[in-house]
């Protein structure tokens, strides 16, 4: 079987990027352990959905996935294989027929996967059964944040790009009952941050009592939130210290920022709270305008 410019061997699946979508990257579990070199952790933002996608195609969780943000790419397959879509529902279809989320799907040569309206969530994950032939840097193929993309050039999808996957034959179809958090207001569990006690009781009460809304600044580095009222903080900074995915910093304007996987490893704003890992998955699926209620937990 002869493709355009490439030979398709047995057990190979090529994905050709016809359209990139808004922001589609290849992600895996990231680069935990290299933060002392100033390297962000990276990796899939909604790890539960990414893991589920890999499970549906019989891959282990360290395998790469496509992280598709709000507006999906158009992909054409050459060869055959199994894929799965989890997380945000972006009305995916193959050759014009809507496909199911959270289920193993079969793809074959000339199939075209398209996305349309975003129905719920923010980020969709696509796993492909087999081994991705993709460059990695520091044991991860996760796309580095915008400014350093040259280190992981093939992990930010580009039009015309070909992704090659060594498939492993057809495995049993798997299905899962997965649903994203659907409440109008997401309860987000947090722990006290390092500077929690630097905030006055009144400010802390305000932080936990009022609702927060996702602003239009939500990306892989961080999510800026707007409250009904800004927190009345005295502008102050700390000597730069560690940020983790899930750290909530309060800017000097009194607005919270939730740091995400691609955040810098250190920062200087007061850290009021830290999200639990499972809450980070919830925030990763939220878009502008969605509301959050912070709930304080204790580290046992």
């Amino acid at each position: 079987m002869n493709g355009n410019n490439y030979m398709i061997k047995q057990n190979q699946l090529f994905i050709k990027v016809l359209k990139t979508g808004l922001y589609t990257t290849i992600q895996d579990e990231g680069r935990l352990g290299y933060q002392d070199l100033g390297i962000p952790q990276g990796g899939s933002l909604d790890r539960d959905s990414a893991n589920l996608a890999n499970w549906l195609v019989h891959n282990q969780s360290f395998n790469p996935v496509l992280e598709i943000t709000m507006n999906g790419p158009t992909l054409q397959f050459e060869g055959s294989g199994q894929i799965a879509l989890t997380g945000a529902d972006i009305s995916a279809s193959i050759n014009g027929v809507l496909v199911k989320m959270n289920e193993t799907l079969l793809v074959k040569s000339k199939d075209v996967l398209k996305f349309a309206a975003l129905k719920e969530g923010c980020r969709c994950y696509m796993a492909v059964g087999g081994t991705w032939q993709i460059d990695s840097w520091l044991n991860s193929c996760s796309a580095m944040p915008l400014q350093v993309i040259e280190l992981t050039a093939s992990s930010l999808l580009k039009k015309g790009q070909l992704i090659r996957i060594q498939t492993k034959g057809t495995e049993a179809v798997r299905r899962a009952n997965a649903s994203l958090v659907k409440q109008a207001i997401a309860n987000v569990e947090v722990f006290e941050g390092p500077e929690f006690d630097r905030f006055s009781t009144a400010v802390k009460q305000q932080f936990f009592n009022q609702l927060y809304t996702m602003t239009n600044r939500f990306d892989r580095m961080g999510c800026l939130l707007a409250g009904e009222d800004a927190l009345t903080v005295v502008p102050s900074e700390i000597i730069s210290s560690a940020l983790l995915p899930g750290t909530i910093q309060i800017t000097n304007a009194g607005q919270p920022i939730i740091m995400m996987q691609d955040a810098p490893v250190t920062g200087g704003y007061n850290r009021i709270a830290v999200l639990d890992r499972s809450s980070l998955n919830v925030v990763a699926q939220m878009c502008r305008g969605q509301r959050i209620q912070f709930v304080l937990s204790k580290v046992s």
Binding site: G33, Y34, Q35, D36, I239, S240, S241, A242, L244, T266
Partner: peptide, 14 residues
């Protein structure tokens, strides 16, 4: 111990 983040006057251990 999965990651170390040393800074000016702190060390964070993940």
């Amino acid at each position: 111990v999965r990651s170390l983040i040393p800074a000016y006057c702190s060390l964070t251990i993940v």
